[in-house]
């Protein structure tokens, strides 16, 4: 009797524990095994003072809460399977019994919750503002479904606009003003900072900082329409010298290369694309779509949908509606000659 109850108890406990462990361990290891590290994760790595304290908070919470979960699960399993003495089964125990469970359990929970509340408020205070005032201010505006990035400067001539790829100097706090051109989006580069909504009619602010050089993935996290899934961006953190070089390059207008197919491509662009896109230094001044002045310098195209290769670019231009169904960019019906001309022109936009 005793043995069988214990065996049952153990079996159930082992079963539950196994399920729990399998549920946690298998996907974690599988996820880590595949392709190195998930680029949008914020729990295994973080690279700046606006995100790291939150990551530690997450570790503490996960560890603590898993322990609590384990304790309560064991209590529950033991409550269910513990051996009962063979008293008279027909007598039903009174109501008053057992209040100690509630007193002790609630007291411990209250203590833990208050400590966690304090810890999280302290963390909030730490990440609320940077230690040093931001060295750089930029404005990011969410569009359906891409990001306009404006680098501010006291000198209007030194301001410039780009899209979907943000460069920042490593080790310095950057202030990001967040706006929306249409619906609510949310700006999120998890390795560097938490997310903040971009709300029409409001200008939100956040700051971020990268302590390590590298490329950090970002993503819209407020549902904003059909192509919400493909509204990505990248943040490139560079040493100050490289960053300055990049800034200087971005400030320039497009280089005027003249060659037969480039000219044909440019004309085609001015004819078919300039209504939406801007290329500074040409007649293309459209404001509905990403600024393409230095398209060639970017790592990704179509708000993170594809890597920036000539083949992808041609594919994107001709099959935009297949790659991002519903996007504002139409699939252009172009002849092979037109495509090669356009590609030649776009490849000059260093």
């Amino acid at each position: 009797m005793k043995d069988s109850a214990f065996r049952f108890c153990n079996r159930a406990a082992v079963k539950c524990a196994f399920i729990l462990i399998a549920l946690t361990a298998a996907p974690v290891s599988a996820a880590l095994a595949e392709n190195g590290i998930a680029p949008l994760n914020y729990f295994l790595h973080s690279y700046g003072p606006a995100s790291t304290p939150a990551m530690y908070l997450g570790w503490v919470l996960v560890a603590l809460l898993l322990i609590i979960l384990a304790v309560i699960t064991l209590l529950l399993i033991r409550a269910v399977f513990r051996k009962r003495s063979s008293e008279e089964t027909l007598i039903i125990k009174g109501e008053a019994q057992g209040m100690r469970w509630i007193y002790i359990g609630t007291a411990i929970s209250t203590g833990i919750l208050f400590s966690l509340a304090i810890y999280s408020l302290v963390t909030l205070n730490i990440i609320a503002r940077p230690a040093q005032p931001p060295a750089l201010t930029l404005t990011v505006t969410g569009y359906d479904w891409w990001w306009k990035v404006e680098y501010e400067d006291d000198d209007p001539a030194r301001r410039f606009v780009t899209a979907n790829e943000i460069h920042i100097p490593v080790g310095q706090a950057v202030l990001v003003k967040l706006k929306s051109a249409d619906v609510i989006h949310a700006f999120w580069a998890p390795a560097l900072a938490g997310k903040t909504q971009m709300i029409p009619g409001l200008i939100n602010q956040k700051w971020l900082q990268a302590d390590t050089e590298g490329v950090y993935r970002g993503q819209c996290t407020q549902y904003c329409g059909v192509q919400h899934a493909h509204m990505g961006l990248e943040i490139v953190a560079q040493n100050t010298a490289d960053f300055r070089k990049w800034q200087d390059a971005q400030r320039k207008t497009a280089a005027m290369v003249s060659a037969f197919d480039v000219d044909a491509g440019r004309n085609l662009f001015l004819d078919r694309c300039a209504g939406c896109h801007t290329i500074r230094g040409t007649g293309a001044v459209g404001a509905h779509a990403p600024d393409l002045t230095h398209l060639k310098s970017r790592r990704l195209i179509a708000a993170g949908r594809l890597t920036n290769t000539p083949e992808h670019l041609a594919e994107w231009i001709t099959h935009a509606q297949e790659l991002k169904p519903g996007a504002r960019m139409p699939s252009m019906a172009l002849t092979a000659a037109e495509i090669s001309g356009l590609s030649a022109f776009l490849s000059t936009l260093n």
Binding site: S120, I127, P190, T221
Partner: peptide, 10 residues
């Protein structure tokens, strides 16, 4: 936990 929710949210 607010700072963590900046990440977990959505």
């Amino acid at each position: 936990a607010v700072p963590l929710d900046f990440q977990l949210n959505e």
